Simulated scan of single mutants.
Amino acid sequence: MLSNNLSVGQVVRATSGKEQGRLFFIIKIVDHEYVFIADGKKRKLGKPKLKKVKHLKRYNVINDDVKNKILSEQNVTDAFLRVQLTKLNNLI
Rank of each mutant, 00 (worst) to 15 (best):
M1S: 13
L2E: 14
L2R: 13
L2H: 08
S3N: 08
S3R: 04
S7H: 07
V8M: 04
V8K: 06
G9M: 03
G9I: 02
Q10A: 04
R13P: 02
R13D: 05
S16M: 08
K18D: 13
K18F: 11
E19M: 05
G21C: 07
G21W: 05
L23K: 03
F25A: 02
E33R: 04
E33T: 05
Y34P: 00
Y34C: 02
Y34K: 10
Y34A: 03
V35M: 07
F36R: 07
I37A: 02
I37V: 15
A38Y: 01
D39R: 04
G40N: 04
G40V: 03
G40R: 03
K44H: 10
K47P: 00
K49P: 00
L50E: 08
K51I: 06
K51L: 04
V53G: 08
V53F: 12
K54Y: 12
K54L: 13
L56S: 11
L56W: 11
K57F: 14
R58H: 12
Y59A: 15
Y59I: 12
N60M: 11
N60A: 13
N60P: 06
V61N: 06
I62M: 07
N63W: 01
D64H: 08
V66G: 09
V66N: 11
K69P: 04
K69E: 15
I70H: 05
L71M: 11
S72H: 08
E73N: 14
E73L: 10
Q74D: 15
Q74E: 15
V76T: 15
F80S: 05
L81C: 07
R82A: 11
R82V: 10
V83Q: 10
Q84K: 12
L85I: 01
K87H: 13
L88A: 11
N89M: 08
N89H: 09
N90I: 09
L91G: 00
I92P: 01
